[in-house]
Nucleic acid binder design. Structure first.
Lengths: 226, 226
DNA sequence: GAAAGGCTTAAGCTAATTCTTAAGAAAACC
DNA sequence: GGTTTTCTTAAGAATTAGCTTAAGCCTTTC
């Protein structure tokens, strides 16, 4: 779960990030509206904590800018305690409104509440895909297309492919693969990864003999071949 | 949009219903926990406003009873203003917590905010029917037709079918199914889903022996067979 | 409080995948 | 060229996932 914390005050931002990390979510601080917009464009977020009083932008501007970029839930955390601002923010697209000074436990509980709801509901929408060369993975349907042909992979092979595709430039060591696919520690004398990798490569190259998709980085591990 | 208002005080219940109707949603008053549960079983709701202090039930009992019946969002409206109760309620499943005496405009704005979010994310937004091959589901009447025959499904079977049909291409893992149908965390050694799936398949294929509707994706879960 | 229907659990069974092993081939390094 | 690492292959064993059935429990209904 990735949470973006938009707050210009350094101390408060830091405090909020700590609350989030204590609950084992990842927190990314942003200190201005423009910085926040950049982060929103760059990747998907599960929740935004937003201070309304940012330099150079009004609260409504920020809220509508966020709404234009994504439909991520937004919790406003603001020093403005008046009903007028609160109601306007909620009407402008905020999902919650907490006034400063805030109770840490309450912020934590509200974050959890929104994430819980969001998680429960994100069953249907947003199509998620991974693409690389002519490999196309539909993460929801868990199908793999190569060279316009459907590829039947076992769940292990699928897990390996997904992992490699998640960071195509990264070299994954065998122990790295083992931890992420098998969720077990790796014992150096194990040929299992080799065999699975071989099987995966065979299936990929059957679908498109002209391409080589996975390369071996000698002494290091494996990586998608770019 | 149907909103259930659970509040034993007649005047406040009436006031809340009026707020809701002013925004052109329909409001249904309930004056006790047991009455609320009955309404929850009888039909689908888009939102619940809930007073925590009801005769005969504690707040947490009500919240978990609601969670067991459906995953409708719940806004708690309570006279208890202490942080402890607030945080406990949010952790117990509430989506929002408003303290009495409340600001009418704020309640209104928060209702809108939750409905907006729910609508944007809900599984089958504003659709009254689901169709797939010759399966026809009437979501209002909760009836299922296959091959022009009415199919009598139990509530669990129905819930499973609805979930699968909501994203026919998506593979639903067992834990995924469990969370969405049973509203409980999944323990790996549980055979329940298997059995229900088997029963559902049997009923479907009795109605139309020629078709296979649900396919098993080995090691991943289940999906509608396209 | 008896009956019916629905739900869960347990057990046996089948099918599919995964692991292991090992030996020869191929590739990379020095 | 020799050494090391990695790849491939294949077959059998082991493991795991899934299916089905039936019995017992629980809840609802009358």
């Amino acid at each position: 779960m990735n949470i973006l914390v938009v707050e210009d005050d350094n101390d408060i931002n830091h405090l909020l990030c700590n609350i989030i990390r204590k609950r084992n979510y990842s927190a990314q601080p942003a200190y201005s509206g423009t910085e926040a917009i950049l982060y929103l464009e760059k990747q998907d977020w599960d929740l935004v904590l937003l201070d309304l009083m940012l330099p150079g932008m009004t609260g409504e501007e920020i809220l509508s800018a966020i709404a234009a970029k994504s439909n991520v839930p937004v919790i406003v955390i603001s020093a403005k305690g008046d009903q007028h601002t609160k109601i306007d923010s909620l009407r402008a697209g905020a999902d919650d409104y907490i006034t400063k000074p805030f109770d840490i436990e309450e912020v934590s509980a509200r974050i959890d509440s929104h994430l819980r709801r969001y998680k429960r509901m994100s069953i249907a929408p947003s199509k998620q895909e991974l693409a690389f060369k002519d490999i196309l993975v539909d993460l929801e349907a868990k199908t793999v297309q190569v060279n316009n042909q459907k590829l039947a992979l076992t769940s292990r092979e699928y897990a390996i492919l997904i992992l490699l595709l998640s960071s195509p430039k990264k070299v994954f060591s065998k122990s790295n693969l083992f931890e992420n696919v098998w969720h077990e520690p790796f014992h150096g004398d194990d040929n299992t990864v080799n065999v699975h990798m071989s099987n995966l490569r065979t299936k990929l190259s059957k679908a498109n003999p002209a391409e080589e998709y996975i390369e071996t980085v000698w002494g290091m591990g494996y990586r998608m071949k770019s």
